[in-house]
């Protein structure tokens, strides 16, 4: 089943980042193996002296939706500036709003994020805000017009998985826009769990890039997201505190001993 965000249809519920890969070719092949149709990029000051490998050369042939992020912004004002740069550089109104001034934990600033989201939505951007797994904040982001919410599973790049699980469950239950779990997903099993919980999509970067074989890992995540989503659609069994027998509890062994 496809996923709709801001009028665009996605056949894959696995979104990917482009950071930390050893090369542009490995990055592109990993994205292809993952089946991802939405890919994040960052922005930086262009180096006129050095002709660095242009990332777009690797991404354009894949036909993916580009999602420029506002990484580096410490305030709403800086994030809005970054979003406008992204719109011009990549010819897209889509933006991953991320404001994380603290370099150790990269936790998203909720106040600046909400401020920026409201202004960017009013300016016509398609805003996908990276935020803490705060159910109240996610509803506020939805109310100001964000196209989705992107609560974190755990700290960026930590590979810890869904440490915010109980909060994510509330967010998923209450959201009326897509919920994309972003940050901290470290293994395909984490991604499968996210989908089994009812998340609409996941965004993965580090776990792919740091793998010894990113392309295989891309395929693994693809399968995990598909499996998790299918399981959610099929309907998972309820958990029980005690056993529920799978075989009939007949005493046939004692009946034959006469």
């Amino acid at each position: 089943m496809t996923l709709q965000i801001a009028g665009k249809t996605f056949h894959s519920r696995l979104f990917t980042g482009t950071g930390k890969f050893a090369s542009g070719d490995i990055m592109a092949n990993t994205i292809q193996a993952s089946g991802s149709e939405l890919v994040t990029v960052a922005l930086k000051r262009a180096d006129l002296q050095q002709k660095s490998d242009n990332i777009l050369r690797h991404l354009h042939p894949l036909g993916v939706q580009l999602l420029p992020n506002t990484s580096g912004a410490r305030t709403a004002k800086e994030a809005i500036f970054a979003a406008q740069l992204g719109r011009e550089a990549l010819d897209t109104k889509w933006v991953k709003l991320e404001i994380h001034p603290d370099p150790k934990y990269l936790m998203p600033d909720p106040i600046e994020t909400l401020l920026a989201a409201e202004q960017l939505c009013a300016l016509g951007f398609v805003v996908l805000p990276y935020c803490s797994a705060d159910p109240v904040l996610c509803k506020r982001l939805e109310q100001v017009g964000c196209a989705a919410v992107m609560p974190l599973g755990s700290a960026i790049g930590s590979n810890q998985g869904l440490t915010t699980r109980s909060m994510l469950e509330i967010i998923i239950e209450q959201a009326t826009v897509p919920v994309i779990i972003d940050a901290g997903i470290g293994a395909p099993s984490h991604a499968a769990l996210a989908m089994e919980m009812g998340a609409d999509a996941v965004l993965i970067n580090t776990a792919l890039a740091v793998s010894a074989n990113p392309i295989s890992m891309g395929k693994a995540f693809k399968l995990a997201v598909e499996a998790g989503f299918l399981a959610y659609q099929a309907g998972l069994g309820l958990k029980s505190t005690h056993s529920q027998a799978s075989s009939p509890l007949t005493g046939f062994l004692s009946e034959t001993s006469t």
């Binding site: 482009t18 950071g19 994040t40 990029v41 922005l43 262009a46 990484s71 500036f81 011009e88 970067n205």
Partner: peptide
Amino acid sequence: NRVIPHSSWSSTVLSEHDEITLFQAIAGG
């Protein structure tokens, strides 16, 4: 520090002491 849309590049006349900054897309999550 004011973004100039591509559509305005040809009509934007530069002034003394203008500070122009160029940005490009790079890898990022």
